[in-house]
Design a protein around this nucleic acid. Sequence first.
DNA 1: CTGAAAGCGCTAACAC
DNA 2: GTGTTAGCGCTTTCAG
Lengths: 341, 341
Amino acid sequence: MSSIREVARLAGVSVATVSRTLKTPEVVSPATREKVHAAVEAAGYRPNLTAIQFRSQRTRNLVVLVPKIANTFFARVISGIQQAAQACHYGVLLCNTHGDEQIEAQYAQLVSSRQADGVIQLRAFDPFLEGASATLPMVNVCEVLDAPPCPTATLDNRAAAREMTEHLIACGHRRIAMIKGPRRSPLTRDRLLGYRDALAAAGIDFDESLLLPGDFTPPSGYAAAQRLLTLPVRPSAIFCESDEMAIGALQCLREAGIDVPGEMSLAGFDDIEFARFCAPPLTTIAQPAEAFGEAAVEMLIALIEQRPLEIEHRVLPHRLVVRESTASPVAQQGGSPLGVI
Amino acid sequence: MSSIREVARLAGVSVATVSRTLKTPEVVSPATREKVHAAVEAAGYRPNLTAIQFRSQRTRNLVVLVPKIANTFFARVISGIQQAAQACHYGVLLCNTHGDEQIEAQYAQLVSSRQADGVIQLRAFDPFLEGASATLPMVNVCEVLDAPPCPTATLDNRAAAREMTEHLIACGHRRIAMIKGPRRSPLTRDRLLGYRDALAAAGIDFDESLLLPGDFTPPSGYAAAQRLLTLPVRPSAIFCESDEMAIGALQCLREAGIDVPGEMSLAGFDDIEFARFCAPPLTTIAQPAEAFGEAAVEMLIALIEQRPLEIEHRVLPHRLVVRESTASPVAQQGGSPLGVI
DNA sequence: CTGAAAGCGCTAACAC
DNA sequence: GTGTTAGCGCTTTCAG
């Protein structure tokens, strides 16, 4: 493992000159530059990154705190983060937190231990955030924070939920159930607001019994759908706060022999890859997963490099994607087989 | 940012004693240990990881090279890696290579630059591997390498494909198509071997026209299924080398009005989360994704810490999961609606 | 059991 | 333009 010293010896120059040739070649004469490069080659020199990091107090690493790596949506965000970081010559240190705050805090310490220059958080409710963000560069994306102690990028969840609800109302539905995320999540609360906005605008009474909690996973969607089917007056449409829950709900409806969208319209949220491969393809709200990752990296690096942020809290665009899982409840009498086969 | 020196001053001991208290407490007297711990507390001391890494020539970081982070299967493997690494106090540096060998080589250099202690590769065909693995700790999982230059963990792909084919034959199928992965992949070749083993054992002639190439994505499965439907004599079953391709194929069959499994049996590979939520739920081969990650970490850390490996090339267990997408071609006359709704 | 001191590989003043 | 030199924070001999 040849060091800069070995290269200097080979090139017949000082270590400082080697360092300069590598870092700021313009201040070195072309002739010495040549010599140094030749020596680098000859020595098979590879700079020791740990020494550079140690010396420069910069690691060019970002830590990413994610509740569940294997989640289809998060995986796309991570992919976007990795992509953007790589372009800026930053590395990505990945941490699966399982929503465990202790693990989160522990990993965030990597930054105070100078193993990383900043952290990207993909979730909300963080006591540790409040204290930590004061001292270390941090951003939060995808989730909603009520009093964000750091820059954020989110969706306009209220508007998105309103649009979806309006779409269902426009189809002719008036009894629209909602399978929700965890109760205490601000994100879920915002979406409820949008749902109620749309209801109110259409003069439809809000019915609390049509609200079921879930945890964004298929099994929770399945369970919620089951409960909805036991209601004295069934809804004619179900709006799920994640495609995964919608997929679980779809399974339940299929097993119960209920045709979608013939007898029940179903909508999701996220537009994961499999949404278009459902039977029937799922109406949903597309979230710009990779763009969340890019925004996170962009903002975090600005923070790290002490550049001012133009926008502290970004709102990324969503898009209502209408596929075949939602239709008019009138058509539900006919029950087009096209929706099922 | 208080350093070890500050702690030493506060505790009234030397820096060496502080270092020892932190690293090898057993060689320090209980009394001094107390004093040091108190001083650490008082100073709010956080060890500087970059200094430790630099000094000790160990980073406790693993780099993971993955072709596509957002792939459902890889995401699970990554999750397993992260989990296992965390348990061993190692960090995970994630790199999306897009199968680009230049990027892979560049990232592998992180190790020679001592930014990481070893690399986990999740794919095959790597010219750089041959040279690199000689010098740096590296393992390869999930993929198949013909002349592995490093420890590996794989499936017995031949046996798995044989089992699935046998299952289809046992159902009564004799014309079984296969939608395959990229041609040059050894993994895909092994699975073809297993497919032919089963065919031969059942006395069924091999028909090359039933083999279609794909790239593991849903669109490629869709396209391949389309081509199969134009065949003069259609197969009665399709075996896809990934669930994602099966999902694409299922979409195609649905659009063509072909009932699964009534008119066509369909099988996948991987057992991704959505396989059981397909309509009908997909028969597939379950791969132990997280276990691949754990095996990778275990072997790599052994390599790094120069402990001998009991097994150089591990074969992880697979499992045939029979769901509703495969059935007897005899039953295909009746076409149970339960399969579709 | 503890302290003094010598670096790990690199950068950045500061001289020349 | 280039060389000399003093560390960055920590570990680790080597003495005591």
